[in-house]
């Protein structure tokens, strides 16, 4: 069951995007989320789409892989489109059948907004497809570092994130194992009335919690035995390195922003 989740799973490769500093990728995504809202006509949306496509091709992640991973989210995009089709009643009437009608403005808005939504999802999935979760964590820790001054526990947060990432596969395996053990004891997880299925979750969740607490305790002991005592005085093994490619990618995004501002109406 768990195995089928492909959305956002890291795909190892040696592309330009893969080799970029996670900090620059995070900054670019953040800025992209902002500049998407500048676009308001076909030309500017077209520019955004081209930019996204260039990014995808640079990442060397097979396109069908991205699409198959996006399937669950596509419904949301489609839903956005339909919502606008039905609810916006401005501009010329394009189509009418009984109570159901589509207006020009509704179609335009629907397409633009779902495209905006779609591009955002594409860009963020390029981030997660080309960056290991731990790189993202490191990038975030580094970007958020200034917050240390206001006593924000950046190191602890990053450590928590990296440990959670480390244990996700372990917990998935464990969930699978307990599910099978309870299925063998007659629990039916996949059919029957909703009420029974909700009840079936209890024999899964309780062992999972109990085991996780035990894990956490043992892990804490092991960490202490290995000399962990908080972020102070710690050195770092993984290093981030900002290169020319990172600067150029940011410049590239700057040019896109300028074009968007220039061509918006």
């Amino acid at each position: 069951m768990m195995e089928k989740m492909i959305f956002g799973r890291y795909v190892p490769a040696q592309s330009l995007i893969h080799r970029m500093d996670p900090r620059s990728k995070l900054v670019i995504i953040f800025l992209f989320v902002c500049i998407v809202f500048i676009a308001n006509n076909s030309l500017t949306y077209g520019l955004l789409a081209i930019y996204t496509l260039v990014m995808i091709s640079l990442s060397k992640v097979p396109f069908r892989f991205i699409i198959s991973g996006l399937k669950p989210v596509l419904w949301l995009v489609l839903f956005t489109l339909l919502l606008h089709l039905f609810l916006t009643k401005e501009g010329e009437l394009l189509f009418q059948a009984g109570w159901f009608s589509i207006y020009e403005e509704g179609l335009r808005q629907g397409i633009f907004i779902s495209l905006r939504f779609f591009l955002l999802i594409l860009m963020t999935s390029i981030l997660t497809l080309t960056t290991t979760p731990i790189e993202i964590t490191d990038g975030l820790e580094n970007l958020l570092h200034p917050l240390n001054k206001v006593k924000f526990p950046v190191h602890e947060l990053a450590l928590m994130m990296s440990i959670s990432l480390r244990f996700i596969p372990t917990l998935m395996q464990e969930t699978d194992k307990i599910m099978k053990a309870q299925t063998a004891r007659g629990v039916d997880f996949s059919s029957g009335p909703i009420k029974d299925r909700v009840k079936a979750i209890i024999p899964l969740l309780i062992p999972l919690f109990v085991n996780s607490f035990k894990r956490a305790e043992e892990l804490a002991t092991a960490m202490e035995a290995r000399g962990y005592r908080g972020g102070e005085g710690r050195t770092k093994y993984r290093q981030l390195s900002w290169g020319i490619k990172d600067t150029s990618m940011l410049v590239f995004l700057g040019i896109l922003t300028a074009l968007l501002v220039l061509f918006r109406t």
Binding site: R166, T170, E218, L219, A222, M223, Y228, R234, T235, Y237
Partner: peptide, 26 residues
């Protein structure tokens, strides 16, 4: 338990964990 003492997300990160704790230079 082999799982409950593996802190790093990869092999090399895990070996480095103790070194980081003790402030060894990179």
């Amino acid at each position: 338990n082999p799982d409950n003492q593996f802190v790093g997300t990869t092999v090399k990160d895990d070996v480095a964990f103790g070194l980081e704790n003790n402030g060894i230079v990179r």
